[in-house]
């Protein structure tokens, strides 16, 4: 399964970025092999409004099954849901820790946005 984590750095032990839409980078990880690639979230960060929607479009293009992040705003949540991507919030620590937490079932899929816009 391919999952996406919002991150601040280019390594698996970089700290997770708690924001989804405005995160600088996305780590796209193949969970079986732990192989990963780093993708820049440049278009969304440059957007004045609707960053979460653009980030969700990028996630859909990358073909990930889940997005693992700290917080998710209402627009990004609606867009990810429409794209059929699971949203997992409440992740913390490094990308690697968040991934382990997710795989161990310690993080639950969100059922709605957990913050208002501009945060995510």
């Amino acid at each position: 399964m391919k999952v996406l984590l919002s991150t601040t750095g280019r390594e698996l032990d970089s700290p997770l970025d708690p924001r989804f839409g405005r995160a600088e980078l996305f780590a796209v990880v193949e969970t079986e092999s732990r192989r990963f690639e780093i993708v820049e979230n440049a278009a969304a960060r440059a957007a004045l409004q609707g960053a979460g929607i653009q980030a969700a479009e990028l996630a859909a293009r990358l073909g990930v099954a889940a997005v693992i992040t700290g917080h998710c705003g209402p627009k990004a949540f609606a867009a990810l849901q429409a794209a059929g991507i699971q949203v997992v919030v409440g992740a913390r620590g490094t990308v690697a820790q968040a991934l382990e937490d997710f795989l161990a079932g310690r993080l639950r899929p969100a059922t709605g946005a957990d913050v208002q816009g501009h945060w995510a």
Partner: peptide, 18 residues
């Protein structure tokens, strides 16, 4: 131009506030 419409292969998603 304002990202008020998102499309993921099904019906478009409309964001009126944008």
């Amino acid at each position: 131009q304002f990202k008020a419409v998102a499309f993921f292969g099904k019906e478009p998603l409309l964001f009126a506030d944008l």
